[in-house]
Design a protein around this nucleic acid. Sequence first.
DNA 1: ATCTGTAACATTATCGTTAATGTGAGCACG
DNA 2: CGTGCTCACATTAACGATAATGTTACAGAT
Lengths: 347, 347
Amino acid sequence: MQTNMKKRVTLQDIAERTGVSVNTVSHALRNKSDISAETCRRIQETAREMGYTGNQIARSLRSGRTHIIAVILGGLSNPFYGIMADAIQDAAQYKGYTVMIMCSRENPDLELQMAEEAIARCSDGVILFPSTGCEKTIQRFREARMPFVLVARLPGEGIADGVVWDETEGAYLATRHLIESGRRKLVYVSDYNIIYSTEHRMEGFRKACDEAGIPESDRCFLQSTGTSGSGDNEQKWMKPLLNSLTELRQKGFNGLFVFCDVEAWHIMQALDQSDELSHNDFGIVSIDNLESALSFPVQLCSVGYSFKDIAANSIRLLRKRIHGDTGAPEKVVLPVHLVCRGSCGNP
Amino acid sequence: MQTNMKKRVTLQDIAERTGVSVNTVSHALRNKSDISAETCRRIQETAREMGYTGNQIARSLRSGRTHIIAVILGGLSNPFYGIMADAIQDAAQYKGYTVMIMCSRENPDLELQMAEEAIARCSDGVILFPSTGCEKTIQRFREARMPFVLVARLPGEGIADGVVWDETEGAYLATRHLIESGRRKLVYVSDYNIIYSTEHRMEGFRKACDEAGIPESDRCFLQSTGTSGSGDNEQKWMKPLLNSLTELRQKGFNGLFVFCDVEAWHIMQALDQSDELSHNDFGIVSIDNLESALSFPVQLCSVGYSFKDIAANSIRLLRKRIHGDTGAPEKVVLPVHLVCRGSCGNP
DNA sequence: ATCTGTAACATTATCGTTAATGTGAGCACG
DNA sequence: CGTGCTCACATTAACGATAATGTTACAGAT
């Protein structure tokens, strides 16, 4: 059964080999005081010879610290999360943490399950990209006294530490960009209905429209289906979407504000596969600026923010809590910027 | 200092509360025998009341199993790895494992460092996407008796368990597709020089050329720079690439076999940003079929394989070793298939 | 000659859980 | 009426590392 008995070298083994106590070995390897230079050298050499590797599990049990940060996000095949995870990994590693990524699939039940995992595994803290319906998860972290930070979405003011970017401003910039490129009949289109993000992006959209004097009749909120990429069957969602867009195009709508880049790609794909429409029939802008990190051959105008800053701030806030800070929740709002690549249709 | 004393509920706490021994609590919570139904019920209820969550760290130390699988890959911002990681996560979770993702940045030194982490944290096993120069990493896993599987790249026959797909066949299919769409002066272009993959893809490219009777003079191997996405500065790599491609175009070269989708996107982006060339000047095919998982508005012909099967087989092979199998290394070669989306230029 | 101090180690307890034994009460049975 | 057996728990010993104390030998002070 246990033929692959991993008999790792332990402090005990080194102790026996060098003829000192386990504690002395432990101290010697960590260069603590109270060990003579000669003994210290001998122990360290023996440890190297024997191929000793400290057992993090044992250390964690003793110290109560795992140096693990759990990151709960939608799923890694979504480039948005992929890029985020990469940035967080980097920032975490820089501070000596290992990350453990868990996927919620944007489902509050799975999210809670992942939270339970994070707690059971004694993570030092959790970075949560909260799903819509994350209340129970947050409640659970509180009751378990598990330090956590909310990223990207912040359901309620002062509820917890959070790192977000200026969503309203982002949507405002994107929409204004559409308008400045000559579009005056605008569609806000999305499959997503995400806590925090949706309301703020809608608000930014409205603000830009108001400012430009675009009447309500020239604004349209199109709730699409399948464009978020959750469903697999293309045929199912493309048809209805194209029908709606064709109709809107005939009514003179010529600008699309799309919730995020991933969704915009889906919509562009649909438009390009259609016989009657092309993605050039609409000015298109969205949010996330993923192309900047990925170098796609897609010319999508988008509003970006710094993934690196989001990661660094998340780790910073988390570390504060891990180290015992019990102050009021801190909210970090990062700036956004517009990147024009031509999909707005500006001549 | 330690104001956030996480005083979790332990078996001991439950034992004191119910007036039985710690062991009895342990048994009761795991529905082991030798505990009377009444006591069992009482203990479980108390545990629920007190909000008990088992401590995985302690369990791991005791049992010698962490139920953690470390995955060492290039980096999550690369959609190839993002999709892979997602599939592996899924397969691992299905079998009761949590994955710990570590990034090698395709750098053997970092890779070794991550391997050390995986060992120190007592992962049950490791899934490694080996970098070029992975010998020391593999050596380390062996000496630590750490079960591992190589995925995507297999440096040497019978060296270790491995899951790959038919690279030669893939490149052959892709190249033949180019030829069948009327291209007969072909460029193999790549920045990558990856162990295993590069030789096999080149071989497939050659095989298709040979079969179609394309003379050596009508084949070109272009070693690009920056197209793999490792460098940040676009201007640096685009110029030389476009110069090379312009020259090749003038010489009549009209088909590009690109190492992988991510690289093909970069090249298409460069072509589209050029004044003299467009991505329509070349038939383009590559490998990975990432669009199928991501729904990008990019019409790239590509050779795909099943991410799900790769993930499932990796976990399967790993579990065999984790459970003590010491048989000969197993190599799984998964089939590939071509997906045409039009970038080949077929009229 | 006794006391004190300290360098350099050793011992012991502990983190939370679980496997391997240990134990006492109650009951059946020859 | 003692033996054996089972039930239902308790006790003890790990897992590997580390913090909190103990211990010893020897140097120097008084």
